[in-house]
Design a protein around this nucleic acid. Structure first.
Lengths: 334, 334
DNA sequence: CTGAAAGCGCTTACAG
DNA sequence: CTGAAAGCGCTTACAG
């Protein structure tokens, strides 16, 4: 069953059938009604490949997710997928390793598949600088700020990581903590963890609290297992810490377990804070004090901005979505 | 840059270029070398849509994931995606609600996109009975047994849920527990949770321990929040329980928190067991006693079976992958 | 508003 | 082993 069959059965030409199928305005109501009737009756579905042969582009949005173990991305992805489908777009998602080059993957993908738009969940600015210029479809970077990148087709929606981390540290300081350690992420400037790190250390510095990277910081990936090892190393090394700021909830969750195994009580003997506001954080024992990123809004705006750009409306935008400091049980006053 | 350009530049015909690109045998080494050289030089990539216009099928595998919050599926999906890419296949994944009709979604998808194969992560047998007959590409159901369905193009790879749940209950019984409650899933026969439920209750029954569904069972979805509420209801209702078997780790995790909030200590005052062996379970406080499903093997076999079927080798198979009872800290001897 | 026809970029019998 | 040509199922100026 193809468009030619529908044409001959309905008594109209292939061109008219095509126009009806694509919602073209210049078709008589009579023709439209008759053709839709036939389409309905035979359960005809246009061939997907042929449809976009001419357009050279497929009717879909490519999504690149960096770090499959990242719970936050999982939550955002779920929302994005739903919205894209509601908007009549199909999402093709590709999972990448936390350290993989997402831009190289996107460039390759674009060359082969010609998607209508691209969504990045997580991104390394260095990779964007290196190769994003080769991408010419509308794109949105989610959970990292692309303002500085200044590409004409790259928008971004994210939490102001630096300011949120700054605020968390101010909170820890207000609780009387003066020896604060940090676990998670790495020091590379443009990355999300780098921004959180910067905000956190800036807060400490401005309040006259010393922070020595070699002694008070331990990098790690965003997994429970690495969080476990990282905080163990950190606490062994700097025994006078009274609080530790884990740059992600998943890391914090692994850290909680490690602290228990070291025989310390949270928060009495060590306060612990997270970042992200993933559902896990509110069920952990103790409940983890964290920064709640507004995933619903981030997902919604990310998709809205992309769809608008795909429709040729509105230019590049860079948005910060409000976050929230959730004071729970894992941090205590000194 | 299209195949015609490559043909004229290389001095060969379009047909020969196409044959080289598709690894057809009947091409001279000379022609192959020259053509590949030109392809390389110009960075040519064949048009994806045109490529499959004739074949009527796209070069990809559709994956339907049921329940986006399900950590186990997340872990399996990550592995599957990696393997599919290594095999040169592209994975198009669609997330569905835990209660959604995955087969209806697949039927619709197949009609429009013609994938080469389909992978289901989670599935409701009733939906398969209703409509799977309309699907004619090789498919594999992962984490549920499709033996009884008896479709000629539907294989399955899963843990023997019934026997694993049976074993977990035997373990609880061996620890001296006689009043055991169950939370999670629902009583519908074919579903995974239904099978776990059956195995568990069969163990109790065979050991002469009474189990009253109305009193000792509380259904819920596989999320922390529902697990929290479910166990709270259950324990309020049946105060004499000494152990609760949560039919999923995510549920167990929410349950741990709820039990704490009720002022009970785990495992001293209430033992708690989970199912799945998701990474979360080993970092929880206390570490959760659970059934570890072998996600690596499940993912690997699922993909292998699908690829074989897509290649026309080997028929339908239904495999149980070995599981493991992980005795950890959340269950104690009475 | 509608039809006839060219064309999208590739694959694949059919000859040779 | 290779080329010329038909065809995959659709879209889209171009006429009328």
């Amino acid at each position: 069953m193809n468009i030619r069959d529908i044409a001959s059965i309905s008594g109209y030409s292939v061109g008219t059938v095509s126009r009806v199928l694509n919602g073209h305005p210049s078709v008589s109501d009579r023709a439209r009604a008759r053709i839709l009737e036939v389409v309905e009756e035979y359960g005809y579905e246009p061939n997907y490949n042929a449809r976009f042969l001419k357009a050279q582009s497929m009717e879909s949005v490519a999504v690149f997710v960096k770090g499959a173990g990242n719970r936050l991305f999982g939550e955002i992805l779920e929302l994005i997928q739903t919205q894209l489908i509601e908007a009549g777009e199909e999402a093709v998602v590709t999972y990448l390793d936390e350290d993989a080059d997402e831009v190289a993957a996107a460039v390759r993908y674009q060359r082969i598949r010609h998607p209508k738009g691209i969504l990045f969940l997580g991104g390394e600015p260095a990779y964007f600088k290196a190769q994003f210029a080769e991408i010419d479809v509308p794109s949105v970077l989610i959970t990292n700020d692309a303002t500085g990148l200044a590409f004409p087709n790259l928008s971004s929606v994210t939490t102001d990581d630096e300011s949120a981390a700054y605020q968390m540290c101010e909170y820890l300081l207000s609780c009387g903590h003066r020896r604060i350690g940090i676990v998670g992420g790495n020091r590379s400037e443009g990355q999300v963890s780098g921004k959180r790190l910067r905000g956190a250390t800036r807060a400490l510095q401005e309040h006259g609290v010393s922070f020595d990277f070699d002694r008070d910081f331990e990098p790690c990936h965003f997994t429970e297992a690495e969080g476990y090892d990282a905080i163990a190393n950190l606490v062994m090394r700097s025994r006078d810490l009274t609080a530790v700021f884990a740059l992600g909830d998943v890391i914090a969750f692994g850290a909680v377990r490690a602290v228990y195994d070291m025989g310390l009580r949270i928060p009495d003997q060590l306060s612990l804070a997270g970042f992200d506001g993933v559902s896990l954080s509110q069920f952990a024992v103790p409940r983890i004090t964290t920064i709640r990123q507004d995933v619903r809004t981030i997902a919604r705006r990310g998709v809205e901005i992309l769809l608008a750009a795909m429709a040729g409306e509105g230019g590049v935008v860079h948005e910060f979505v409000p976050y929230q400091l959730l004071k729970r049980e894992s941090v205590c006053k000194l």
